[in-house]
Amino acid sequence: MTVVELESVTKAYESKVAVSELSLKVEGGQMFGLLGPNGAGKTSTIRMMMGITIPDSGSIRLFDKPFDRKALERVGYLPEERGLYKKMKVVEQLVFFGQLHGLEPGEARKRAKAWAERMEIAESLDKKTEELSKGMQQKIQFIASVMHDPGLIVMDEPFSGLDPVNAVLVEKTLLELKAEGRAIIFSTHRMDQVEKLCDSICLVNNGRAVLAGRVREIKGSYERNRVVVEFEGSAEFLKSEEIAEAKNFSGHAEIKLQEHGDAQKLLHEAAAMAKIYRFELVEPSLEEIFIQTVGGNKE
């Protein structure tokens, strides 16, 4: 089922066009990355999906139907700007948000407890929100956005403020939710996470989609002209004529070949000067693709 579909959506504020003719489609069971530099139009796009603002033109469909506020009860949203009622007890806060999403108070309380256990913050349920650390508050906000079993989960920078242990916990939970068939859209600057978690992406720049599709296919469309070398000995081979650019991290080098650079020739030169443990021809990383595309230098 198509969970969310934007068709030629445009939104302008006074003198600035925030989103222009943007179209995208996210299916159930899909993890979708909405990427772009600061001010590209990601938050404006998400706000329109959530009915916070209304598009000037174009259409938005949620769960295969034209946008209707009632459908928002089936959406979970974790905005970039986090917000919780500081004076409220955690459990009361979660019950309140659960009820706003259509849960009965008893059911909301039950789910709040179950989710608190799952996210390892059960001991904080009876504390006031202001007594908790930023990371803990982040987890509560995460629970508030998923506890009502949404079919669509929209997360803006879900890992910011989390330590590595909790980031892994959230990552694992998101993958479980995806496996249950929910559509997850997340917007982030962390390209390593996008590469690891997302099936598809849409890269937005100046309000327009500049790159969209499945991550595998996008990366496959770029030439394999990167080489990762792990070695011991002289690094002189990094001065080879085949290399356009090289970064050496003492024994680990990341190399970009010349336009017609020969990887085999480079391997021979390297082997002659150093002991080679790994020599791998790789695709460009999503981060490189991002920088090239946004900078207008797609190879």
């Binding site: 916070i52 928002l72 959406v75 949203y77 905005p79 917000g83 999403h101 906000q141």
Partner: peptide, 10 residues
């Protein structure tokens, strides 16, 4: 406290 963004989504 930026709670509006959360509230406005519902």
């Amino acid at each position: 406290s930026r709670i509006f963004e959360v509230m406005l989504a519902i």
